[in-house]
Amino acid sequence: MQRTILDHVEPVAEGTVSLVLRGAEGPLAPWAPGAHVDLALPNWLTRQYSLCGDPADRGSYRVAVRYDRLSRGGSEYVHLFLRTGRPLEVSLPRNNFRLLPAPEYLFVAGGIGITPLKPMLAAAVEAGAAATLVYVGRSKDAMPFASELQATYGDRVRVYPTEEHGRPDFIALAAGLGPQALVYCCGPASMLAAAEAAFPAQGLHLERFQPVVKEFAPNKPFEAHCVRSGRTVPVAAEESLLDALNHAGYPIPSGCREGVCGSCEISVVGGEPEHRDDIGAPPGRMYCCVSRASSRLDLDL
């Protein structure tokens, strides 16, 4: 974890504030567009937020937090109780939503989903790519950074307040893309489903707020053999691999516990994991908060 000081809190839309976290012990860890961090709040909760500032600024991180009426305690604390000057611990950045090289991009943001896409648009424009942002929200007043982005990028940014215009036609947007274009989309589940239906799968990259509801075979107990320490940890059907490892004395970091943030990634050196995450674990890795196995796993622990 990195120690920071909450340097600045600023409203950036109805129900959304921006937090600037200044490094308390020198430069902060580098990051690239699409990265997020875990923010440890003083009420003992940890929440994940996309970095939406300038990657070249090693002195501070910027995130934006929307107030959720059904808050489980994270956004409520940020909006009602967090004050400037507060020391806060922040994880090293993780990136499961990397911006790949391309000559053309379409960025599609829904509400607070603008946060990972804002630095992506800046990077794409700086690289000389053809880049367009389609930004969808209830009203312009409720859309963080909308006016700032329009002022900076002009016609590259198309804002769609749904109260006035409804949603854009994704099928028409897809028809206007070149063959090498990549589409990056972040927003509510309904918008992501529409994007999946409209854009070619090979060029579409999504980041989700919440996991997709899936069905799996009933959980079975299995064993996790920790190769470096020589211990075997039993994992009961009713517990997660993450909990079993933590209870056995292996302090695996965790954040969302839903398979969307990637903080609990571990290395697998033998056996076949049953991947249940929404990120797409790379070969030899798994996210142990949700993923399991039907037989023994050998872990690099």
Score class of each variant (00 low, 15 high):
251 P>N: 06
159 V>M: 06
132 T>K: 11
94 R>T: 14
99 L>S: 12
129 A>P: 04
64 A>Y: 03
226 C>G: 02
175 A>Y: 00
63 V>C: 10
44 W>N: 13
263 S>V: 03
204 L>W: 07
286 M>Y: 13
188 P>M: 11
60 S>Q: 02
214 K>C: 13
166 G>Q: 14
65 V>S: 06
249 G>I: 00
92 L>V: 13
67 Y>F: 15
234 P>H: 08
214 K>I: 01
235 V>H: 10
29 A>N: 05
301 L>H: 03
101 P>Q: 12
228 R>T: 15
299 L>F: 03
1 M>C: 11
241 L>N: 06
169 D>T: 09
27 P>T: 03
178 G>I: 08
189 A>Q: 14
78 V>N: 00
125 V>M: 12
202 Q>V: 01
47 R>A: 05
10 E>G: 08
191 M>N: 01
147 S>C: 09
184 Y>N: 11
181 A>T: 02
57 D>T: 09
160 Y>W: 15
73 G>I: 06
114 I>R: 07
182 L>A: 09
26 G>C: 10
97 F>S: 00
72 R>D: 01
15 G>F: 02
245 L>Q: 12
56 A>E: 14
72 R>P: 10
140 K>S: 09
129 A>G: 04
18 S>V: 10
291 S>H: 14
198 A>R: 00
74 G>T: 08
135 Y>H: 09
261 C>M: 04
138 R>Q: 13
151 A>S: 13
110 G>S: 10
228 R>K: 15
24 A>D: 00
165 H>C: 08
222 F>S: 02
260 V>S: 00
14 E>D: 15
7 D>L: 07
212 V>W: 01
192 L>G: 03
34 G>Q: 04
46 T>H: 05
5 I>D: 03
223 E>W: 00
136 V>Q: 06
178 G>K: 11
61 Y>M: 02
